[in-house]
Design a protein around this nucleic acid. Sequence first.
DNA 1: AACGTTGGCAACCGCCGTATG
DNA 2: TCATACGGCGGTTGCCAACGT
Length: 312
Amino acid sequence: MGRAPCCDKANVKKGPWSPEEDTKLKSYIEKHGFGGNWIALPQKIGLKRCGKSCRLRWLNYLRPNIKHGGFSEEEDSIICSLYISIGSRWSIIASQLPGRTDNDIKNYWNTRLKKKLLGKQRKEPGRRGRRRTDNNPSAAQEAAKVADDNGNVGVTGWPQLPAAVAVPYPIEQASPLPLMTRKKPPVELGGTFSAAHHLPQPQIFGDPFSFSSLGWSSTTNSLLQENSSGTIQALQCTTTGNGFSAEIDELLRFNPAKLEGVDWLYDMEGTAMSSSPLENMNWNEVSHLMYPNMMQQLSTDLLMEERLHLGM
DNA sequence: AACGTTGGCAACCGCCGTATG
DNA sequence: TCATACGGCGGTTGCCAACGT
């Protein structure tokens, strides 16, 4: 037996919300809150809408301090970096960007950022696609503004990708989400990670153990070496210089304390990747070091994904 | 001017996890 | 323990303005 529908589909209105509906919903929630039950809400206030629809409308459009459009370069870099690390978990990404909704970020990623990474330029920047015609035209103008390397702002094509990530870490340190909760890996190609994640299992130093033994569900080839005090001293990862695997990236972000003792990064051939010991480097510095390569890898992955999709 | 195409985005759909009885 | 209801989430669809031919 299937699940009962949340509302009588025959008697609910669908499609765009009218200003009257918006006003009703907004004023009620501002006065009384949603009452702990979205499904019951529309009946209470006389709206012929599904409760879920009310919730969505409130969260994505009516609630205070929502920002639309005009994503800054800093926001771009945060979105890109988090996408690399945790995949399409838009709600988590949105939680790092005040005023942004998961829907907005998802749309922005799908329509713009992804293409930017794929290197698709607009034929005539700013001349295609729908122009915003809402009550805030300046927002549309802001959206088209980009800054060059010198910080000069102009209305041109796509902005350059940031050279380094500046994510306001720590993210969710209180409740890091392990990879096992992922619905999907960040970039999946025919059920596997991209080639960079499939390097041969190495013969490495010491007596390593995998992330799975740390309670991570990953099948990564990344290997670690613990010292006698239980902290990780050396880290060897599946990379040819194209960036960390997502697992290591996530460990760096969510559990940096575990890596406090790491002195060197090695690739799978045992070559040191870092030009100097990582001692005294914080996450932002490490990510700064690796970010361009991470972006290059994601860009390559997206390109391959698109080619597969097109049967090329 | 008319029609076709593209791109942005609001909204819907359906699955999943959790709370509750 | 199981069934049901609900909130939350990511994927997808469809509308429509802007633009191209």
